[in-house]
């Protein structure tokens, strides 16, 4: 009985975690443009949202000192100087030098939350300077929320069953 109940609880959690992944949808394929300004120790806008499959264009500018723009998961690292049109861009995995560009262009192929963070020491709070790019559907988040809600439901089920069993024994 105990192992059967355990199995049911695990199934509830798994179903709750997986179902949102099938239900969630987003219409990608559009072109999204963003103009991100960097300052000590934040980006403006701090959060950008796109859909999977969107072509993302990002222009960068610095309002104070030299900042970096490292977008995790997308092999993008830029260096932004204040008062300069355009910025420098490289792809770390290719190990090449920075090249002067006017915008970053890439396709949002990986769903989830990706942080862009400063990669050039810019002051005391530099290690914590970051922004967020959400690529919908945000599968990891949906699975996490589903899992937590599933755990709540299975806890209720387990407690209810165990309470009823106790009542019957009495």
């Amino acid at each position: 009985m105990k192992s059967k109940l355990m199995l049911i609880c695990v199934m509830i959690v798994l179903v709750c975690a997986i179902v949102p992944l099938f239900v969630a949808s987003s219409s990608g394929g559009e072109t999204k443009e963003f103009y991100i300004k960097a300052r000590q120790y934040a980006y403006e806008p701090a959060k950008i949202t796109v859909n999977k499959g969107d072509e993302v264009h990002i222009k960068l500018a610095s309002l104070d000192v030299i900042h970096g723009f490292f977008l995790e998961g997308y092999d993008i690292d830029a260096q932004i100087e204040p008062g300069v049109q355009g910025f420098k861009l490289r792809h770390p995995s290719e190990g090449r030098e920075f090249a002067d560009v006017n915008e970053i262009v890439f396709t949002a192929v990986h769903p989830g939350k990706f942080r862009f963070r400063c990669s050039h020491t810019c002051g005391t709070m530099h290690p914590f300077m970051q922004g967020e790019m959400i690529v919908n559907p945000n599968y990891p988040f949906l699975a996490g929320v589903g899992g937590a809600v599933g755990m709540l439901i299975s806890a209720m089920v387990a407690m209810f069953v165990s309470g009823r069993k106790d009542k019957n024994l009495r």
């Binding site: 988040f141 709540l152 407690m159 209810f160 309470g163």
Partner: peptide, 28 residues
């Protein structure tokens, strides 16, 4: 056991809400 479980429901809901808040902060 039934009383024990019922007494636990509100705090379990609070714990789940806290985890949802962390999930939102970290991944949402």
């Amino acid at each position: 056991k039934s009383r024990a479980a019922r007494s636990l429901i509100p705090v379990v809901v609070v714990c789940t809400a806290m985890i949802l808040a962390f999930l939102k902060l970290f991944t949402g």
